[in-house]
């Protein structure tokens, strides 16, 4: 390392670094008391495969996060469309149709990030469990 770079690292730097590393401990302790110190079980798993879903759950509520939903065959035929663009109009339909217990499974086309975002928004609303179908 060049001498001038070494000379820009006085001992004051170390004090500042220690201070900056220590200070966040206080507010983070406060937020941890708000949310709980123990980590919630990572049950809101993302990217679950269709075979895993069939093994674990007998009933599923499918949510179609594609921007332009098209009819699908099989288990996903009755999926409820829910896209961020139409969030305000489509979300009430979910609350009408969902029984509050059946696991919600959000899916999208391969390479589409909508299912991740929609699942995240649903979790933020406190809905549980919300799963994302692996592409």
């Amino acid at each position: 390392m060049p001498n001038h770079l070494i000379s820009t690292l006085p001992s004051r730097c170390l004090h500042v670094i220690l201070l900056l590393l220590a200070l966040p401990l206080l507010p983070s302790a406060w937020t941890l008391t708000q949310h709980g110190w123990l980590a919630p079980a990572p049950q809101l798993k993302s990217g679950i495969s269709e075979s895993e879903l069939q093994k674990k759950y007998s009933q599923l509520f499918w949510i179609d996060a594609r921007e332009n939903p098209r009819p699908l065959s099989g288990t996903r035929s009755g999926a409820l469309p829910l896209h961020e663009k139409n969030w305000d109009t489509q979300l009430p339909l979910l609350f009408q149709a969902w029984d509050g217990q059946t696991p919600l499974v959000v899916f999208c086309d391969p390479g589409c990030d909508n299912s991740r975002r929609v699942a995240r928004k649903l979790r933020e609303l406190g809905l549980d469990p919300v799963l994302e179908l692996a592409p």
């Binding site: 730097c13 900056l20 983070s28 937020t31």
Partner: peptide, 30 residues
């Protein structure tokens, strides 16, 4: 879980420190 509560505060304080002349060299290193 612990990191999810610690890192955001660290980033916020680091951001403020980078904007403060007195703390800048240490903040820049971190």
């Amino acid at each position: 879980w612990l990191l999810a509560h610690y890192l955001p505060w660290l980033e916020c304080l680091l951001g403020l420190a980078l904007m403060t002349a007195f703390l800048r060299p240490g903040a820049l290193l971190l």
